[in-house]
């Protein structure tokens, strides 16, 4: 979260440098060049995080039954059940059917996950290309840097608008998640919420007798206070960046 917000702020501060607002946030990060330096190093941290996460994913696969592990219930890989649940949910929106019984991950959570998983390497590759333009032009024609700059900007805008509009709402602000989905910080989900949202998951845990195994202690109060403050600060900051970004978009004099 910290790296994402920092990248948004430093990136936007450079994209909007020709506007009054851009100059203001840019000065917070020490100017046009320093903000780029921060952007690069935070990017490196994100890339390291991506590699660590991928290694972690590989250790999560049960290599004795890889097919079952990758395409099974607990996996984030999309499958036909998601398509069916999506259809059911559309009917449910209009009161035409019952709510789908979600298992561990809903289809929009899977979309969220894979959006980041392809977006991050794309931003990393195009970012590294622009960090080392001379080396890049040894292996690719120089005009690939035009493409890299465009892709980096477009994917960043896509990620930022998606996170600050869609993800914030469906993750935290919609009525059944409000005021916050605490799973990210507490590492666990209240059983009551899990039964409501993901009955199929809880059921399969009960059937295999693993429910007690996976149950965890509720987060302590002081920690909850800390992450509520942090989470809402992040939300306010993100919405601030998005609204100003939209307001000043017309003033960016760049092709």
């Amino acid at each position: 979260m910290i790296t994402f917000l920092l990248q948004t702020a430093t990136g936007f501060s450079r994209l909007y440098i020709t506007t009054a607002w851009g100059k203001k946030i840019n000065s917070v990060f020490g100017g046009y060049d320093t903000s780029l330096l921060i952007h690069k190093w935070v990017g490196v941290v994100m890339m390291v995080g991506f590699v660590i996460h991928t290694v972690y994913l590989l250790t999560r696969i049960n290599w004795r039954t890889p097919m079952k592990s990758i395409f099974g219930e607990d996996s984030l890989v999309p499958n036909l059940a998601d398509l069916k649940q999506f259809g059911q949910r559309i009917l449910w929106f209009f009161g035409l059917g019952s709510h789908p019984r979600f298992s561990r991950w809903t289809y929009w959570e899977k979309f969220d996950y894979w959006a980041v998983y392809w977006g991050l390497p794309l931003l990393a590759i195009t970012g590294v290309m622009m960090m080392y333009p001379l080396v890049t032009s040894r292996f690719l024609p120089g005009w690939s840097l035009n493409i890299a700059a465009l892709l980096h900007r477009a994917e960043a805008i896509l990620a930022v608008t998606y996170i600050f509009i869609v993800h914030f709402f469906i993750g935290h602000l919609r009525p059944s998640s409000f005021p916050m989905n605490e799973a990210m910080f507490s590492g666990s989900v209240p059983l009551k919420e899990a039964i409501e949202e993901k009955p199929a998951w809880v059921e399969s845990l009960q059937n295999t007798g693993r429910l007690n195994e996976v149950s965890a202690a509720a987060p302590v109060l002081w920690y909850r206070v800390v992450y509520f403050v942090f989470g809402y600060a992040a939300l306010i900051f993100g919405v601030y960046l998005l609204i100003n970004g939209i307001m000043y978009a017309r003033q960016v004099s760049l092709h």
């Binding site: 449910w92 929009w108 805008i157 869609v166 469906i170 919609r174 059944s176």
Partner: peptide, 19 residues
Amino acid sequence: LVGTLAFFIPHSFLTGVRE
């Protein structure tokens, strides 16, 4: 970008209303 938002904004809105 437009496709993602055109899908997920109504989707989120309907989720909120239905809930």
